[in-house]
Design a protein around this nucleic acid. Structure first.
Length: 659
DNA sequence: TTAGGGTTAG
């Protein structure tokens, strides 16, 4: 709050300002284009005041430094010292928007309501927009309802407000209402409506808006086009996104970023990286948005070398590691297996937020360092970083994978202290934690006591644990509960059949297989990928299509012989559909990850770390074989399955056989 | 006066 007095000469005003907050008095020379005010007393000036010089164009900058909104100007207006004009109010609203000062915006609004601008449509639109930018859609909506006259900008401002404040449905409801009034949307309206259309489960609405973009002639506009391709990309329709991108009349960083982000979200790292190179070739400067999407893409590829190359770009660009880029960068290093580099990035971050901590905890957990993950969680709490629901999920998963039963239970209890309501994923992980640790009865009691109806995923976690600990009765019960949700889900059928097979109950396993056959259920085909010499090779079990199949099998046969010599015993319970023991053992050696390993050994130099990715959980027999293989071939083998990472080195796996 | 793109888990 400022108290001011002033005098003027030729549009230069000398203001005496006293701030109650800091108990300081300022002599302020205020150069302005405002009309000359009435006379001012100059007797208030004292000698012990500080001098500031402010030009009206500097008002925004100066008051930003003072962390105020410059509302003292309103006092001047109120005292008749200044005659308000549009640019003064606009400056104040800009300031409120910038600092998200809702209360101040309300004060300026009240002031305007008592001024000549009371019924000014443009001014009303500005106020409405300020409320939206300050996050108060209630204020914006109230004003919208009160406005006797509304134009296209009024509607667009409110639509944009809802779209930008996570209320897409409200935005989508307003759009047709606006059209019914025969107000013609422009590029601002359409890009906001498209942003709102990018949420939800279907692109049906977005496609309709696409038609409106054609109708009104904005489809090739870079703003509308970028929103349009982003909308398609969010629904995974990259072909449609590309069609829009290719036809844009001009492209900018945002169009490129939207496309890169689309590929990154789909886990199409290669495409995202190609786009990044293309963007550089065409002379576009990558932004924070670009880098965070590219690192997300690289994280999904686990491609450390390419990750380092892009990291070098960021360093060359000289930018600071802001939260988004820094967090995705450290996640990339963690997911690429280099937890040390991830920690270095973490240490260099300008600001470490809950996402930075979660990423480190997950990094440790996924690479088998459960205790380290728990230690980081404790440190995070010690320095009073407030955990979120993802933090707890990360820590619970870490505990579950590392067999840290007590720590996991304590972590679950701690959620109450932070007022975080457990979600389905937390319950699933708790059942997993108890079940893997062999506490199947406790897991069952936990499910019974759940405050919500247990889901198929909860029963699935119990079934998985029953398979590990060979508890047929409880496993069968869990499987039956899952079938009640979805009798056509092949996953639990396979798990159940595996469970019977590994317990030697081949007749029961055969019954499940028969049931699957009769219902037309097919097991999801297991695939493994291996990256060599900048190309990605995919393998499926019993792969007969690969041009080098003979050589691949020869290499694996050689390894198979060697690992058997040092203790590998094939576990044929992981083969479902063959009754003959010899045939089962033969099929076991043709699992996709084994073929991928053989191919990687053929095509990479000695000592080179081998990276394999798998679309489902790594098979138990392959896990055992890889441990022995890592010793025989003297290589580090990293397998990333849907659950976690396995670092096989010198006969051991980082997961400690607990996955 | 109104517009578009980015992070952690499962």
């Amino acid at each position: 709050m400022l108290k001011c007095s002033a005098f003027s000469s030729n549009k230069t005003y000398m203001l005496k300002c006293y701030t109650f907050s800091s108990n300081k008095t300022y002599n302020v020379r205020f150069f302005t284009t405002f009309a000359a005010p009435a006379t001012f007393p100059d007797s208030d000036f004292s000698d012990d005041t500080q001098d500031l010089v402010i030009h009206d164009k500097d008002l925004l900058r100066k008051s930003r430094r003072d962390s105020g909104t410059g509302l003292h100007v309103l006092d001047l207006i109120h005292r008749g010292s200044l005659e308000p004009d549009r640019s003064l109010y606009n400056t104040l609203f800009k300031k409120c928007t910038l600092l998200k000062k809702l209360d101040e915006a309300r004060i300026v609004h009240a002031h305007i309501n008592a001024s000549l601008f009371m019924d000014d449509l443009v001014m009303q639109n500005t106020i409405l927009n300020t409320y939206c930018k300050c996050g108060s859609l209630d204020d914006a909506h109230n004003l919208f309802e009160e406005m006797p006259v509304k134009d296209m900008v009024t509607w667009t401002a409110l639509i944009t407000g809802y779209s930008q404040n996570d209320q897409p449905l409200n935005a989508l409801v307003l759009f047709p209402q606006m059209l019914r009034l025969e107000l013609k949307p422009n590029q601002f309206t359409l890009s906001s409506v498209l942003k709102a259309s990018g949420t939800g489960i279907s692109d049906k609405y977005g496609r309709q808006v696409h038609a409106f973009c054609f109708k009104y002639g904005y489809v090739w506009n870079v703003y509308v086009g970028s929103s349009l391709l982003d909308m398609y990309a969010r629904f995974g329709r990259m072909d449609d996104a590309w069609l829009v991108f290719d036809k844009l009349e001009s492209k900018n960083e945002v169009s490129w970023n939207a496309l890169i982000a689309g590929h990154a979200r789909k886990g199409e790292g290669e495409h995202a990286l190609k786009m990044f190179s293309g963007m550089l070739r065409q002379g576009f400067e990558p932004t924070h948005f670009t880098y965070s999407s590219v690192f997300t893409a690289l994280a999904s590829m686990g491609s450390l070398e390419q990750g380092k190359w892009v990291h070098a770009h960021v360093i060359k660009s000289g930018g600071k590691l802001i939260a988004y880029v820094g967090n995705t960068l450290l996640d990339m290093y963690a997911k690429s297996g280099s937890i040390d580099d991830a920690r270095k990035v973490f240490n260099r971050l300008e600001r470490r937020d809950v996402v930075s901590w979660n990423s480190m905890i997950t990094g440790y957990a996924q690479h088998g360092h459960g205790k380290e993950a728990v230690r980081w969680f404790a440190e995070m709490l010690r320095i009073r970083i407030v955990p979120n629901e993802i933090t707890f999920l990360c820590v619970l998963t870490a505990c579950s994978h590392a067999g840290l039963l007590d720590e996991g239970q304590k972590c679950f209890e701690l959620m109450k202290k932070y007022s975080i309501e457990p979600q389905e994923a937390h319950y699933v992980t708790m059942v997993d934690l108890l079940g893997r640790a062999g506490r199947l009865d406790q897991a069952m009691k936990f499910i019974i006591k759940l405050p919500v109806e247990p889901t198929a995923a909860v029963w699935g976690a119990l079934l998985g644990a029953c398979r590990i600990h060979k508890n047929m009765d409880l496993g069968t019960y869990a499987a039956e509960r899952i079938f009640e949700f979805d009798p056509h889900d092949s996953g639990p059928h396979v798990l159940l059949a595996n469970m019977y097979a590994s317990a030697g109950r081949l007749c029961d396993a055969a019954k499940v297989r028969k049931m699957m056959k009769e219902s037309g259920l097919k097991k999801e085909p297991a695939c493994s990928w291996v990256e060599t010499k900048n190309a990605i090779h995919m393998f499926v079990a019993n792969d007969d299509a690969h041009p080098q199949r003979e050589e691949i099998r020869k290499v694996w046969d050689e390894i198979y012989g060697k690992i058997k010599e040092i203790g590998y015993i094939p576990d044929s319970s992981h083969v479902l559909f063959y009754a003959d023991q010899q045939e089962r053992e033969a099929k076991l050696q043709l699992h996709s990850e084994k073929l991928a390993l053989a191919y990687a050994l053929m095509t990479t130099p000695p000592g080179f770390t081998i990276w394999i990715k798998k679309n489902i959980r790594v098979c138990g027999d392959c896990h055992s074989a890889f441990k022995f293989a890592s010793k025989v071939v003297v290589r580090e083998i990293i397998v990333r399955d849907t659950n976690r990472y396995h670092h096989f080195r010198d006969g051991f796996c980082s997961c400690g056989d607990y996955w």
